Simulated scan of single mutants.
Amino acid sequence: MLLRDIAHARAGDKGDISNISVIAYDIDDYSMLEKHLTAERVKAHFAGVVHGEVVRYTLPHLGALNFVMQQALGGGVTRSLALDAHGKSLSGGILGIDISDWS
């Protein structure tokens, strides 16, 4: 099972910072997200892409987690040679995290 089976994501960016929100489809799944989807796990998932700090913010009333990732866009929109310089595909990338071992 993948994260996309229980949540959706939205992304934003500013300079070399990507901001991803992961929102549970069902509020009952939020506690599982909060327990297992740590900043460390997200940073490990994006190894080689995110070179700076990853900070997680919790939004329990929304059933969401927000991750702010520094040095994530190859220098930012105007400096990166990446096809997706705005980092929008990172929201799709985070949903590929395998959650089969969560319980």
Rank of each mutant, 00 (worst) to 15 (best):
L73E: 06
D26P: 02
V68H: 00
V77T: 11
G48M: 06
Q71R: 13
L81P: 00
V68D: 04
A39L: 09
H61D: 05
L59I: 11
A85P: 02
E34L: 13
L33S: 06
V42T: 08
S91T: 04
D29Y: 09
K35G: 01
H86L: 10
R56I: 00
A47L: 09
K88R: 12
R41I: 03
V77F: 15
H36Y: 15
T78Q: 15
V68M: 07
L37T: 09
Y57T: 13
V68Y: 00
G52E: 04
L62F: 03
L59F: 15
S80Q: 12
T38K: 03
V55H: 06
F67E: 04
G93W: 08
Q70T: 07
L59G: 00
H86C: 10
L33I: 07
T78G: 14
E34G: 04
H86D: 08
H61W: 04
S80N: 13
A39P: 03
D26H: 15
Q71I: 02
A85V: 15
G75F: 03
K88D: 02
L65N: 09
A44Q: 13
A82E: 12
S89T: 15
G93E: 02
L33T: 07
T58G: 07
L90M: 14
T38C: 01
M32L: 15
E53F: 02
N66T: 01
S31T: 14
V42M: 10
L83R: 12
V49F: 12
L37I: 11
H61Y: 10
G63Y: 07
H51V: 00
L83K: 13
Y57A: 11
